[in-house]
Amino acid sequence: MTTAPYGQLPAETLAMSQATLLCDTISTLAESPVWDEKRQVLFWCDILGKTVRSAALTHGQYREWSFPSTVSSLGLCDDGDLIIACGMDIVVLDPDSGAISPLCSIPSPEDAPFRLNDGRIGPDGAFWVGTMHNVPLAQMEPRGELWRVTASGAERMQTGLTCPNGLAFSEDGSVMWQSDSIQRWIRRRVFDKSGGTFDEGVLVAQMTEETGRPDGGCLDRSGIYWSSGVSAGLINAFSPDGTHLGATAAPVPHPTMGCFGGPDFSTFFLTSHRHNMSYERLQKAPLSGGVWVIPTTTTGFAGFRFRR
Rank of each mutant, 00 (worst) to 15 (best):
T2C: 01
P5L: 09
L9G: 03
L14Q: 03
L14C: 09
M16S: 12
S17H: 13
S17Q: 13
L22A: 13
C23H: 15
D24Q: 15
L29D: 01
A30H: 02
K38Y: 08
F43A: 11
R53V: 11
A55F: 03
T58F: 06
Q61D: 15
E64H: 14
W65L: 09
P68I: 09
S72M: 02
S73W: 02
S73R: 01
I83C: 08
C86F: 04
C86S: 15
P95G: 06
P95T: 10
P109S: 13
R115H: 01
R115Q: 09
G130S: 00
G130Y: 01
H133Q: 10
P136E: 15
L137Y: 14
P142R: 13
L146K: 01
G153F: 02
G153L: 02
A154P: 04
Q158Y: 03
Q158D: 02
T159M: 01
D172Q: 09
R184V: 10
G195E: 14
A205Q: 12
T211S: 15
T211L: 10
G217W: 10
W226Q: 03
W226L: 05
S227Q: 14
S227E: 08
S228D: 11
N236L: 09
G242R: 09
H244D: 09
H254S: 09
C259G: 08
F260Q: 07
G262S: 10
P263I: 10
H275S: 10
M277C: 01
Y279A: 12
K284W: 06
L287Y: 13
S288E: 11
G290M: 03
G290N: 07
V293P: 06
I294C: 06
G300M: 00
F301A: 06
A302S: 15
G303C: 03
F304M: 03
